[in-house]
Amino acid sequence: MECPHFSAARCLSCTLMGVPYAEQVAAKEQAVRALLPAGIDWLPSVVGPESGFRNKAKMVVTGTVAAPVLGILDRSGGGIDLQDCGLYPPELSDAFAPLSRFITLARLTPYDVAQRRGELKYLLITVAPDGGLMVRFVVRSTESLSRIRKHLPTLLGWLPQARVVSVNLQPEHKAVLEGEREELLLGESLTMRVNDLDLHLRPQSFFQTNTEVAAALYRQVQEWVAEGVPREVWDLYCGVGGFALHCAAAGRRLVGVEVSAEAVASAQRSATALPGDVEFIVADATRWAVARTDAPDLVVVNPPRRGIGPDLADWLERSTTPTVVYSSCNASTLARDLAAMPSLQPVRARVLDMFPQTDHYEVAVLLERTVRS
């Protein structure tokens, strides 16, 4: 893949741009293997398209009402237009021009970071596998809310594939992508069809950036869970429930725990037609687990880059849970956590290239308990 923005040093986010894709994947696998213990059975790495794979665009809005710029900020705080970024599929990038026209129509003044003036900070657009869109306007105040509502029918005429439209209020002058308050103007959730499952994505809930590779990750975890035939599974840091919902089965109790209420609401809606006893709980995953005196047959953990940390690692080490599946986006913190759980040995692992053109990745590891000495 080649990118004119990278070549001109306008955008250097894709640090591996220009490196042959096979070399990128091999280097990631080598780096992960070097951090984890020896003796693991490594499955072939999972890859997807090296371009056009992102299902979400986070566009900083700069410029003027008459000529908005969608992209990123340069070092001086000016805007760099990235509407033609090669990481976006056509279903996503085709939405940028209508949204730019809407900014002008609704008189949404782009936020000026240096002057601390203006209203519209970001456009957050997510595309589903069927082409449906979620569009979120991140604004500083409610000043523009009535105009967005007024002109929404026009936007829907330009973007008939829009399923969810909302306004997020982020009043603070800091590098925070979104605020707590969300005003829904259309719909409630975007349906992400993944592996014959409908995952319902609400505006403030997280979903993996690469739908195709995320589907492969869910299948891999589903396979490992099915092998153990567990009666009870906990999915900690469950997000919108991707792992949990893929592992639902008749006769199985499944508990997902996630601190985001929006993500849990998404998961609960997705679970309504699934077999088994499925429950999703809004709570800090670590605090919830370490407060329990019982332990399930299997635990799935999918923490943020910081890893599960010492408290949860210590609880898992002392627990009777025989099997853990750990999905990580940071092999350094994964290695740290594994060292804190010596009774749970990694037996199989797989790198999944969720983020082509960068040095980021996802790695799934199957851990099995050995007899304590």
Rank of each mutant, 00 (worst) to 15 (best):
L105V: 12
A9L: 09
A271K: 00
T286C: 00
S45D: 04
Q170K: 01
Y21M: 12
L298A: 03
Q222M: 09
V176R: 06
L367I: 03
A31D: 12
V365Y: 02
V113L: 14
T370P: 06
A8E: 08
E119F: 07
H173N: 14
R75I: 09
P230E: 02
L199K: 06
P230D: 07
E23M: 12
V47C: 13
V139S: 13
M192P: 05
Y122V: 09
L12R: 14
S327H: 04
G276W: 00
A339G: 07
G63D: 05
E29Q: 13
S45R: 07
P346H: 04
A295S: 09
P90Q: 09
R305Y: 08
V351G: 05
E119W: 01
A57Y: 06
L16T: 09
Q220G: 11
T333E: 01
I40D: 11
F6S: 03
E279Q: 14
L298I: 03
L35M: 15
L367S: 01
N302E: 05
P4D: 00
V46S: 13
F355R: 03
D74Q: 05
P230Q: 02
P37Y: 10
V229M: 14
G131S: 09
A263C: 07
Q220S: 11
L133R: 04
H360G: 03
R269E: 14
S205Q: 02
S93H: 04
T272R: 15
S189A: 13
V371R: 11
T358D: 06
T109A: 15
R287D: 06
K58A: 09
F355M: 10
D130P: 03
L245W: 04
S166L: 02
Y122Q: 15
R140T: 14
A8Q: 13
V139W: 06
Q83S: 15
E212V: 11
D130T: 08
Q115P: 04
A162V: 12
S7V: 09
V139C: 08
N302M: 08
S7H: 09
G48F: 08
C238G: 02
G276I: 02
A248N: 04
E29H: 10
N55Y: 00
G18P: 10
D277Q: 09
V60I: 15
L201K: 02
R136T: 05
Q161Y: 03
C85L: 13
P153G: 08
P322C: 00
A31H: 13
L159Q: 11
P68R: 06
F207K: 07
P98I: 12
S76F: 10
Q204P: 12
Q357F: 07
H5I: 05
A273C: 10
S260R: 00
R140M: 05
V225H: 02
R193T: 13
Y361R: 01
R292L: 01
S51D: 13
P304M: 04
L16V: 05
V25W: 05
T209E: 11
V32E: 10
I281P: 04
S100V: 12
N330R: 07
Q345T: 14
Y361T: 02
